[in-house]
Every structure is written in structure tokens, then in C-alpha cells.
Design a protein around this nucleic acid. Structure first.
Lengths: 341, 341
DNA sequence: TTGTAAGCGTTATCAC
DNA sequence: GTGATAACGCTTACAA
């Protein structure tokens, strides 16, 4: 047991007032310099900047928010229910993109776990003026329970919300088109029994990617019956692949709804002594860390996830600051041909 | 550059003043009720509470921070360099634990990416009085570059820092002991050629777990030469396992420094047509989602990661509020016997 | 262009 | 116990 640091005596932080005194100007002028107002004598500005540096002055966020009537903060809502989403590489990258963008702005990123037990707490936090905008990142449909807040607070979603997509702001990729094109990769190379491990059918990405696959196989004159559904986790991919294999029908290729499920499919396929891509070709979606962790490296769709996060943050800031923004933003994907198909 | 267009509907947030008016008391009294001060007439308190509810009043954080000279916020520093840490299930769970604990406090959790390009920005943010405490979660040694701030700001680390551990606050498990015991699981069951895929040797968990393995194999009279080093990623585990297998020496068991590397080892082992656990037994460390995603399910060490995050936050809050706290906190681990060994 | 001064919504120090 | 009233550090009309 040791003693603690003294929390009651904060270290001396310089205030705007002190800067003003040192520079021999009024606080208003310092404030103008700090917020680089257009109209301020360059010479004065210089001496103010010198004083700021000398005192190592940093504006106090609380005071600033109070005066501006802006929190200067955006909140990321993390659904508590699914602790898995947090470990999801998709989620991780989106958050990274968000944080990266916000680093260059005046906004701070804070995170709340949307406790289902007391949604009121989250709600009042969000609506209490503590936050200028909200970001919702979740694959899962049930987590769009915050959609109704979008009337009161700027809000941007990662991916089209299942409901209320017409009045929501969101950023996504063309899942259907991308799924179609990666499946074409399979059919074009002569595969005749192309299955899919689809994502949850109550989630837009799950639905849209399945649709893209279907279009491609039908177009190639193949059966669209080889479908098993997973939940985007590695384990579910493995189970779905086993079910596919257990059908006993011919199978020479599979499109997994994301790379994690593809990795799961790998374990099932290789666990049965089959070879990728010789016996079964595999393609995925996302191009995340799983794609290059597996052997052979996975052919997949590059999903610009970090960009997606950045874009979400950018749009949110636009919204907060009253700039016009598009409701639906589509980011481009690309095919990444590796060794699995 | 006019920004006249306001985003969304700036809903009327009730202020303390309004509550006071409605309840027919002074603002001071309302404030006392809100902060449940001991001395306030129960009857008055009740009517104030009623007014609060009626107006859906939420205290303004900025104003409160300003008056209290406390940010009421703690910051999580995320190293930018390693975008991988973010997708690391360890990281994800720690953050989850932190967020869970903070939900029940007055503190807000915010995240900053410690941009290496401009460390000054991060530094001034932290030291500018915007934050009451700092949490550092990183497996990686280089990311403890913030250690020097711990003199100026309460700070808690996930895991013992490589340097300055005597004067730092941190929470961890007894990595060496746990690694020893899970390795014993292997030696006790008669395995005679027990290898390890160690974590990075510039990181305490990597070092300590290797030491635990070594003690166990030496104690069993076995060779301690079967060591390959990975970086805690799945891919590195696979590569290390291949190197182990390529040695051409007998091998019937392996302890991987974490579950991700164990999963990588699985792909290498099964990819070569060997069987787990018949040919090679595998054990891991962490008991994360990988442990149950692989087949056969992985025998591993349960690492209470969410608890670890909670504990970190708890200690940080203690520190902030001037309560005494232990510098080193050790959390218990347990063995989870599944099917891989 | 620069300064004065009035807030922003709370908390805290006093008297009463 | 309760209520004025002065901070808290900054922004922003409004003057000068």
C-alpha cells in the first residue's frame, strides 16, 4: 500500500488571462489569436503567440464549451449486448478511422457503452448537451435503437440502418455490387458449384452480399441453393462450412460474407483434408487482418474501413457545423486477388 | 463564411436555474440535491427532484467541470503506430471493462490516438487540464512513452510497464506463474517435447510467459530449446509453428504465448495433416474468442481481461479522487481445460 | 483593430 | 437548512 498522488492540487495551468497579461493585451485579443480570428494585428498576434508558447498555454475545454454552447465532443455508441463487436476487426478499424479524423479537429471522441439495463442514462447523456454528435458503429440491427435520436442530434451510422435509412446519414460500400464481382471471380474461373456463407439476414451487409452472390451464380446458370448463414464470426464460418460440406453435394467454391467467416471456412475445409484452392476456392469480404493471416492468402473484396470511419467523422462534423451533407455516402471497393481463388 | 444553418433541432435543455424556478428554491439548493448533499430538507429535496424529472434536467458537464476544476473525464491513449492493437481482442476487452466501470461513475471516457507525428498535441491535451487521468493499454513497450507524465497526472497501465514499473500503477496477472501451470498441464500428461511460441521479448507478458514455460520444462527434465518467437498475431503464430515443425526434431506439444498465436499454430499443424491433440497438444493464454473458435477447443489460461479493464478504471478513479491505491495489482488466472491438450 | 463587459451553467463561500 | 453571490476560464457582442 502506498500513498497516492495529490489529486487536490492540480499543476499550474496557464490561463488566457495570464497570457493576456504577459503579452500586454486584453483577453479578448488573446482569444482572437487562439481562434485565429481574421482581424488582429499581425504584430500583436505574434507577441501573443510568443506568450502562449512561453506559458505553455492550452485553452480550457470546459470553459470554451460553456461559452460556445458546444460540447466540442462527439460520442461513439458501443452496444453492450454484443461484446463481440468490440473485438471485431471491422469495428476496430472504423473506430481507428474516426479517431484519426477527429485528431485534426477540435472535437474529442468519447465512448459510451449503451447499457441496455439503463438506456435512460445513455439517452440523457446524449441529449443533455454533453455531446455535439453521435456515431453509431454496429453491424447489428438491434443496435440501431438510437435512430430516433437523429431528429435531435446529428448522427452518422456505419452502414445503412435497417430501418429509417431514408432519413439517416450513413457511410457504406456497395455490398451487393462488390459481392457480385467477387463471386464472378469464382464463376468466371470455371467453378460450377459455388456456395456462400452469408452473414445474418437481419443486417444490411448480410442481406446485400447474399443478393450479390445470388445474382452472380444465377447469371452463370448455376444453382443458388448452396447457402448457409453465419453471424460474421470465425466460429460461425467454420460451422457453416461444415454444414455445406455435409450436404454431400458437389462443391468447388465458396464466397464467405466476411473474412472472419472465410477464415473459419478454411479450418473446416483444411480440417477435412481438402485443399484451397485446388479442391475448393474461397473468397471473402473486407480485406481485414484475417485475409492475410490465413494460408493460402485470401482473395477478397477490399473494404476501405478506416476510410469509412474517417468519412463518418467528417460528415458528422459537417452536420454539427451546419454544413450540408449527403445522407448516403458510398465508398469504392476493389477486388484483391490473392491465392485462394 | 456564415454558418446560419443549425444542425438538427437545438432542443431546449433545462438548466439548473429553471429547475430552481419550478421548484421555488434557489439554485444552490438544486445543486445540493443534484449532488445529494447531506443537509437538505427531505421535503424540499423531493419537490426539487420532481422538478428535475418534469424538466428532464441533466447537469451541463462543461459548467460543472469549470466550477469544480475537474474535467470529469479520463483518457485512453491508443498508440497509432500499431493499428493492430486495436483489433487485438485483448485490447478490445480491456477497453470494454474500462467503459463498463466508468458507466457507473461521473467520468467520461475519451480516446486519443497518440499520433507520433505530433506528440506535442497529445501532451498538451493531456496536460491542459482536459483530463483527470490517463489509461494506457498496450502490449507494446514503445508505447509506454507516456510514463513520464505519471508525475503530473494520475495514470494506470494495463500490464507492468517495461520501464519505471516501481513508480507506476498497473494491473496485471501473474504471467509467469500461469504460464508455468499451463505448461505443467503438458508435461504432466506425458508430453516429452514441449515447445513454445513466445511473445515479443521486449514486452513483459512475452518475457514472463516464456520464463514460466522454461521453468516447467526444465523442472520436467525436458529440453528448453524449442523456442520460436512471434508477435502475438495469428499470422506470426502460424509462421513460428512452421519453423518449429521444420526443425525436424521431435515435437509433441506447444505452449503459445496467447490464443491468437495458438490459433495460428493450429493452421500450421492441421495444414500439415497433423492432429491436435493426438500428434501435437496445444495450449494457449488468454481464453479469448479464439480459444473457442478453433477446433478442437483450446486448453488455455483464463485471463480476466474485462476485469482487468474494470480494475484499471477503478484504480484510476481512486487516484483521481485522492484515495490510496496499490501500485501493482495482480488478478487471478485459472486453467481452462478443453480439448487441445 | 482592440478593449470592455456581459454572459455560459455550475459549484462553493459565505451570511442568515 | 437555505439563499445570495462570487468565482471558474473563455467567447462575443458592443463600444471605442
Amino acid at each position: 500500500m502506498t500513498t497516492t498522488q495529490d489529486a487536490g492540487a492540480p499543476r499550474p495551468v496557464a490561463t488566457l488571462e495570464m497570457v493576456a497579461a504577459l503579452a500586454g493585451v486584453s483577453r479578448a485579443t488573446v482569444s482572437r489569436v487562439v481562434n485565429d480570428s481574421p482581424s488582429v494585428d499581425p504584430e500583436l498576434a505574434l507577441s501573443v503567440k510568443k506568450a502562449i508558447l512561453a506559458l505553455d498555454y492550452t485553452p480550457n475545454r470546459a470553459a470554451r464549451s460553456l461559452a460556445k454552447r458546444r460540447a466540442q465532443a462527439v460520442t461513439l455508441i458501443v452496444p453492450e449486448s454484443t461484446s463481440k463487436v468490440f473485438a471485431d476487426p471491422f469495428f476496430a478499424s472504423v473506430v481507428q478511422g474516426i479517431a484519426l479524423f477527429l485528431t485534426d479537429t477540435e472535437y474529442t471522441l468519447n465512448m459510451v457503452i449503451s447499457s441496455e439495463s439503463k438506456p435512460e442514462k445513455t439517452r440523457s447523456f446524449l441529449l443533455g448537451g454533453n455531446v455535439d454528435g453521435v456515431l453509431v458503429v454496429s453491424h447489428h440491427s438491434s443496435d440501431h435503437s438510437w435512430t430516433h435520436l437523429s431528429g435531435s442530434l446529428p448522427m452518422v451510422f456505419a452502414g445503412r440502418p435497417l430501418v429509417g435509412s431514408r432519413e439517416s446519414y450513413y457511410v457504406e460500400v456497395d455490398n451487393e455490387r462488390a459481392a457480385y464481382s467477387v463471386t464472378r471471380q469464382l464463376t468466371d474461373s470455371g467453378r460450377r458449384h459455388v456456395a456462400t456463407i452469408a452473414g445474418p439476414q437481419d443486417m444490411p451487409p448480410g442481406i446485400d452480399r447474399l443478393a450479390g452472390w445470388r445474382t452472380a451464380v444465377v447469371e452463370a446458370g448455376l444453382s443458388d441453393g448452396l447457402v448457409e448463414v453465419g453471424d460474421f464470426t470465425l466460429a460461425s464460418g467454420a460451422r457453416a462450412m461444415h454444414r455445406l460440406l455435409d450436404r454431400g453435394t458437389p462443391l468447388d467454391a465458396v464466397f464467405a460474407g466476411n473474412d472472419q467467416m472465410a477464415a473459419g471456412a478454411y479450418t473446416a475445409i483444411q480440417g477435412r483434408g481438402l485443399r484451397i484452392p485446388e479442391d475448393i476456392a474461397v473468397v471473402g469480404f473486407d480485406d481485414d487482418s484475417f485475409a492475410t493471416s490465413v494460408t493460402p492468402a485470401l482473395t477478397t473484396v477490399h473494404h476501405p474501413i478506416i476510410e469509412l470511419g474517417k468519412k463518418m467523422a467528417e460528415i458528422l462534423v459537417d452536420l454539427i457545423e451546419g454544413r450540408p451533407a449527403q445522407r448516403a455516402t458510398m465508398l469504392p471497393t476493389s477486388l484483391v486477388i490473392r491465392d485462394s481463388a
